[in-house]
Design a protein around this nucleic acid. Sequence first.
DNA 1: GTCTATAATAAGATAGAC
DNA 2: GTCTATCTTATTATAGAC
Lengths: 217, 217
Amino acid sequence: MSFTDNGKDTATRILDAAEVLFVEHGFEATSLRMITQRAAVNLAAVNYHFGSKEVLFQGVISRRLAPYNQECIEELRQALIDAPHGLSVDSIVAAYLRPAIRLAKDPARGGIIFIRLMSRVFAEPHDSLRDMLPRLYSDVLEAYRAALVKALPHLGSHEVSWRLQFAMGTIFYAFAGNDVARLLSQNNVPGARDPQEIVKHLVPFVVAGLTAPNRPA
Amino acid sequence: MSFTDNGKDTATRILDAAEVLFVEHGFEATSLRMITQRAAVNLAAVNYHFGSKEVLFQGVISRRLAPYNQECIEELRQALIDAPHGLSVDSIVAAYLRPAIRLAKDPARGGIIFIRLMSRVFAEPHDSLRDMLPRLYSDVLEAYRAALVKALPHLGSHEVSWRLQFAMGTIFYAFAGNDVARLLSQNNVPGARDPQEIVKHLVPFVVAGLTAPNRPA
DNA sequence: GTCTATAATAAGATAGAC
DNA sequence: GTCTATCTTATTATAGAC
């Protein structure tokens, strides 16, 4: 590993630049030339270090995701220790979002950029990009799904799956920075990009959705 | 207007093909060659009829959206006539989703493909594509926002905006066909692509989210 | 309006010197 | 590991015959 003047090696510089650009422009619209220019490295370095643009994308995700997943699982484990007789839906949602807030505040681990990238991946049309997440993320989801099934015993397992799916959609969409808010011509929601502010309004919505009565008239 | 053997003119054939391909692959990854090949028209026809790929995209959206918007507004107007003293959140959500279900069942107006395309637009990284929707969709949103503000008088206008934003995110995500469901290794949600089935499970979730107490402890 | 042919450009990937 | 130079292939868009 050789180092450049700003203290990061070439592969890391490429990952950092790619992370930002993939969020901003999506996979297809981000060229290797944009990435290497931003990273101030040679064009050929991408293929030397990663082999292809697609593998680079996987690298951008996986470098951050593994430790983050650990944190999510650990957070749930701790919550379960503190309340061994089962968690409320509220505590489950709060536990799920706590690592996200911590990550959002920590630029060294990608910060809000990585949160937004995760949200974006689900919307990537590229099958190979979208399909990498189930593999990388299923452990976390299964853990939280199990907790929810326990917390909502009156709902069937299928209904919990539906609601978890909606909840994930809501959360990812809220963090994606797509600014559905901008749709509203008036009343631009203030603080719509601040993760802490988002979560404050998001938690009641998601908790209420998850705990909704099984079938209103 | 000259017509080909299957009864549709060239511009329409291009729009039909582009609609499907933009949903499937996104804007960037869909080439004019894919479109003209699928439409069985000449490559140059796109630029003759539309001028550019971006204008074509706008054309795909706007041909369907104007009549659909009319329907959404009319649905709300009718509901308000039937209940002149104000609508429940439940009726508002139901009114909003009714045109979507009708459209989803009507392939002649784009069917589920167009619903999914709308959902996808919000996730398009291209600014110029994402930014066309506020202009085209704000009337509908403002109408439903006003109804929600009336139905939820105890919430501030800002809070209603937040929740409408979350609700729209949930709904669009649910229809986008991104299959967050596939994240769950087990328990693949059955019927996850059938609009009627989606709506059945979606309504209680969204209504509960919108009517959540203002700030649970 | 529709076609062929092509211009102009940008993309991902690689070979080979250093 | 890093560079320059280039290959190969794709793209959007257009010019001009019919």
